[in-house]
Design a protein around this nucleic acid. Sequence first.
DNA 1: ATAGTGATTTGATCAAATTCTAATCATTCT
DNA 2: AGAATGATTAGAATTTGATCAAATCACTAT
Lengths: 176, 176
Amino acid sequence: MKEKLALLKLLADETRLEILNLLLKEDSYVEKIACTLSLTPATICYHLKKLEAAGIVRCARTQFYMIYSLNREIFDLPLSALIQKESPAEDPDEKYRREVISHFFKYGKLTQLPTQRKKREIVLAEIARSFVPDRKYDEKEVNDIIHRYHEDHCTIRREMIACGIMAREKESYWLI
Amino acid sequence: MKEKLALLKLLADETRLEILNLLLKEDSYVEKIACTLSLTPATICYHLKKLEAAGIVRCARTQFYMIYSLNREIFDLPLSALIQKESPAEDPDEKYRREVISHFFKYGKLTQLPTQRKKREIVLAEIARSFVPDRKYDEKEVNDIIHRYHEDHCTIRREMIACGIMAREKESYWLI
DNA sequence: ATAGTGATTTGATCAAATTCTAATCATTCT
DNA sequence: AGAATGATTAGAATTTGATCAAATCACTAT
């Protein structure tokens, strides 16, 4: 990733683009480029050295001049190849989930039920982990478990059913 | 050219690349992205607005959130399409030539014959413009014409022949 | 050798861009 | 209407990067 970013940074400069356009037409050398672009040789050298370090140009000494030339293979890459990470990286949903949980739970207690639907679902799903799948609970059991997280077990129990985490039939509750 | 440069500048930022990578996986919204990248919503908004202005992302309001999504067509471009100017622009050789001439000629006089071959050829070619093609000159004529530019007409006459601008046979000189 | 010329490095300066905090705007829910 | 929440804007601080002048290096030619 860092390499791709570095390459993009190199290309994202007007002077360097001008230099590359000149080299696209023909090999050249510092003073000539400087003269063409109305900049000092020091500046051109600064840019050429950067481009050289990235493998975009090469240079070789001739009699008087240091002749710079393009390494043309690089430019066949599609843009998409430069913006995509190679490493899959962490799931952003999972990171977001952890942030929400650490925000709404303090010392294992739910401080407040989020009003935002997405956040509320995350919080409710976290509480639901205290229930065993496929087991049936009566209402008192459900309330007691939820009560470990928050006073208002009724609201939370109702919400868990409303958003499809739990199901209820008669006196019986279970995870979905 | 400026548009391409602007596009490259947009892509050449770590935060924006991260954002694009997230949007590549799925549409998202400001707060969620901010949370994932551990940055403030203000910062994410700043970047998304830039990307939107360039047509790289779009956004649409849903219930609560402003959902941002990628405009994927852009990324099929090859890099070469981004570094090349569309306008042919001025010939760099011509610009260089003018610079050399203005450096070595003052008030129409040659101040000094450059020792660098490339520059010397440019200077000699400039002097050669005072000769008419296909006409024969004797040595005195040649010397007089050159003398308008510089005292040392002998050296310059010799150089013009040495670098193939003029030819000589017996007493006769002419442009090549 | 030594003068001349082009290339490079160094150090300083200046401009542009990112990021944050705080304030404001826009929308939804009660 | 007003309370809550997400998005956006404004302003300030910081960082990054381009440019130049001057000094130095590397090579060529006299």
